[in-house]
Amino acid sequence: MPQVKLKNKLVLTGAATMAALFLGLNANAARMDMVDVSNNNGYMSTAEYVSMRNEFGVKAVTVKISEGGTYKDPYAASNIANVQAAGLYINGYHFARYATKAQAIAEADFAGQTAKAAGLPVGAVLATDVEAEEQNNQSKATNDANNKAFMQEIEKFGYRADIYTSGSWANNKMTVKGKTGWIASYPYVVSGKNWYSTNHAWQWSSTAKFRISYGGFDVSQLNSNYYTADQKSTVKPTDKDAVKDNNKEANKNTSKPSNSAKWVKESKNYTLKTAVKLRADASTTSSVIAILPSGTTVKSDQAIIQGGYRWVRQPRFNGYGYLATGPANNTLEYVKNGAAHTYYTVKSGDSWWVIAQRNGLSMTTLASQNGKTIYTTIYPGQRLVVR
């Protein structure tokens, strides 16, 4: 199938009826309209995005651009280029760390400059991801003022602004009006209800699976055309069963906790293999206290299995934080108990065979532990797990 490259354009108006036609609204299952990716997903090829588009009906991808005032996502530029090459609409987001208006403006300037350098086109959405401890410690009025300052500054770069936050924070820790906002809330039952239908987007799962991509992904249903700038995409999933399977998996991952579940004492140190959300309670719908980056060591004092996950409790200076160490079968999917992985950065001229031989591995083992096959193309700058 020929690839059609969609160019971003700034069109801010559109009738609700046209949005309904574009989205093909269906209350029976949550759609996989938009995927968001970051360095946690590693290098993503154009082929992976084409698969998302053709098989699962993905229309847009929102990539992480930056965090705070210094962090630039190393995969932002390649994600932007490959998403566009796959014929999908591209947007970006900045993970906010600001606690004051001055910090919000400074972070917006940093995010805007970083987005420009990475190739995010004018007219794309550059959302502020507001879910960190810095905002949790502020009043609603302060968060509102800071978010407004960030978004006004972002618009000076030619980007459209929006707020991403959790359902428990929306209109609690900050104001998210109707016809705005991208809300994350993982329900007990996904199918049968269009959550946050008055907002631009609803992120309904963080564990979605795609056929040729490794790991779980955040997926959202678009309830307006804001994240596609009113482009009337005709993309429809060719693998409807796969979309239904992801709905079922999301239901399983957020199933109601058993009343018989009990906390047990545990004293362990976990080193995170990837960034993990530290939550205010042992539930995927609870508010996010902070995002713990890869390599962080977490010491637990208790553990419990509920809601489809194994949770541990981390004592903190002002109470406790909770994080999922893996699914309820107790395999440590998200964290590694003990030392962190050893990584190798791919250099020009490297191949699966060269890297495997250098590290005493078979090509199959090396590819497998990185969620790939020996036929997957690797690129200079890509990081591979070798230990």
Rank of each mutant, 00 (worst) to 15 (best):
S78V: 13
Y164I: 08
N171Y: 09
A77L: 04
Q113I: 12
I105A: 12
A132H: 03
Y98M: 15
R97F: 06
H94K: 00
A96D: 08
A127P: 09
K101H: 12
N143V: 01
Q135F: 09
V63Q: 06
G57K: 00
K101E: 15
I154R: 03
Y164A: 08
A106T: 06
Y71A: 12
I90Q: 04
Y93H: 12
Q152R: 12
K59P: 06
Q84T: 02
A86W: 00
A77H: 02
A132E: 08
K64L: 14
L126I: 00
K140Y: 10
G167A: 05
V130I: 15
G112D: 03
P74A: 10
V122T: 15
Q84W: 02
S66D: 11
G68M: 04
N136K: 13
E107Y: 02
A132W: 00
Q138S: 13
V122C: 13
A145T: 10
E133C: 07
D73A: 13
N171H: 08
S139P: 12
N91I: 02
F95G: 04
N147Y: 10
I105P: 09
G119A: 02
D129V: 01
T114C: 15
A149L: 02
R97G: 07
S66I: 03
I163A: 09
G57I: 03
Y71Q: 13
L88H: 05
V125W: 00
Y164C: 10
N137K: 11
R160H: 14
A108T: 01
A102D: 15
Q152N: 15
A145S: 14
A118F: 09
D129M: 03
G87I: 00
N91Q: 07
P74H: 03
A118Y: 04
N91H: 08
I90R: 04
N137M: 11
K148V: 11
A99C: 06
E155V: 09
A86Q: 01
A161G: 13
T128L: 11
F95R: 08
Q135G: 05
V63T: 15
G57D: 07
A132V: 01
K59N: 14
E131C: 07
V63E: 08
V125T: 05
